[in-house]
Design a protein around this nucleic acid. Structure first.
Lengths: 206, 206
DNA sequence: TGATAATCCCCTATTTTGGGTGAATGAAAC
DNA sequence: GTTTCATTCACCCAAAATAGGGGATTATCA
């Protein structure tokens, strides 16, 4: 049985180039291609694609929402984003929504074929820069204004723990934790837990 | 100038095989190889490697701590983990500690060379399974016991927001949020924010 | 018809939080 | 050898948040 493919891409030249390329590849079958998410989702049940190549810049419903809906309607569907965008926020939104791979359009056509085989074999095909962004998202900013202890405290705050709990865990007094929090707030220029967590996460201090 | 490489690997057969392979590759220079982290770290300043291939199962100091210390001593050093372990926890610990790539030992030797070039060009070389684990870590569990609304509420709790703030954001009354929280606690069998966040994060409900 | 989801209300008591001010210790840096 | 920094703790206050208990009304969906 061939690997069933659907394309969602609003540039019809690219759409046809991909269709040609993939239909001329052993084991691949392009069952459908669409210029928008709405038409694609309407036919998802009858198309039954194994893998979908999805663009993100689409008219009306965007690709990220398209990914989410695909996963709700048909969870076994695997999606690879194919786009020009390398924007942090968009990449993570797409992955959170359920994309299993992310390619940027400056790749050689052979990479597309490779990626489809890779995702079928349990991988997560990504362009070089995307993989780096993803791995970097696990790592802390080394230029944090917070001390080691303050970081430890804020990490626990971000786990929803109370001052008392944190104090117990770190074998210090509750007042000590309060002092650390005050210093953290001063350094991050915030006045509440939520703001501190948001800022620290954004800048990867925690 | 060649790419300077250090190896940290306690199996001396593998160490020598890698050294041979890499020293016979254009532009590569293995400047040192060690069977443990302690010796490696002591010489990091004089070795000045561009890329380090690091095993994780090491005597005394483990590879994860080795990665952390490397990044503190010499942040520009790039590290690729080369190990047999595909354990979730270890993978994420290594990446959080600062690893820029993660390969499992069932790869062809050519993949090692490719990976070193890849990390130098701004990539994050990973084995198939590792890449999948990393991408999956962004995605939610589709078998959550929580409703869409409850998930929305718990996500905001995990951002450190108060009931009042959440109520405002969702355009409902504070009492509604309280009811959701009670139901969340009942479903997750917990009795506090911290426990709810921990359980929900672990099971990827949020 | 029942189950579930989402909304809201009231009561109580305890804890938590944010802000202010101050201070002792020890280590590292200059 | 003084000074900066990190870490620790103390006490005051008032507002806010939290957890637990009870109950109720819609609307939807199977």
């Amino acid at each position: 049985m061939p690997i069933r493919l659907s394309l969602v891409e609003d540039d019809h030249l690219i759409r046809e180039a991909f269709t040609d390329l993939l239909n001329n590849t052993e084991d691949f079958l392009v069952v459908s291609s669409y210029s928008n998410c709405e038409d694609y989702l309407r036919n998802l049940g009858t198309d039954r694609p194994d893998v979908v190549l999805m663009d993100l810049e689409l008219p009306r419903m965007g690709g990220v929402e398209g990914i989410e809906r695909t996963k709700k309607l048909r969870p076994q569907t695997q999606l690879i984003v194919v786009t020009v965008y390398e924007n942090d926020e968009l990449v993570f939104k797409a992955l959170c929504a359920g994309a299993g791979g992310y390619l940027t359009k400056n790749m050689p056509p052979s990479r597309l074929i490779e990626a489809i085989r890779e995702i079928r074999q349990g991988g997560a095909p990504m362009s070089t820069n995307i993989a780096r962004m993803v791995v970097a998202s696990f790592q802390k900013n080394h230029h944090s204004p917070l001390t080691a202890r303050e970081t430890e405290v804020l990490e626990r705050i971000a786990q929803g723990k109370s001052y008392t709990t944190i104090a117990d865990e770190l074998f210090v007094d509750k007042e000590t934790i309060r002092t650390h929090i005050k210093n953290i707030y001063w350094k991050l220029e915030v006045h509440s837990k939520a703001e501190a967590i948001e800022k620290a996460r954004k800048e990867r201090f925690i």
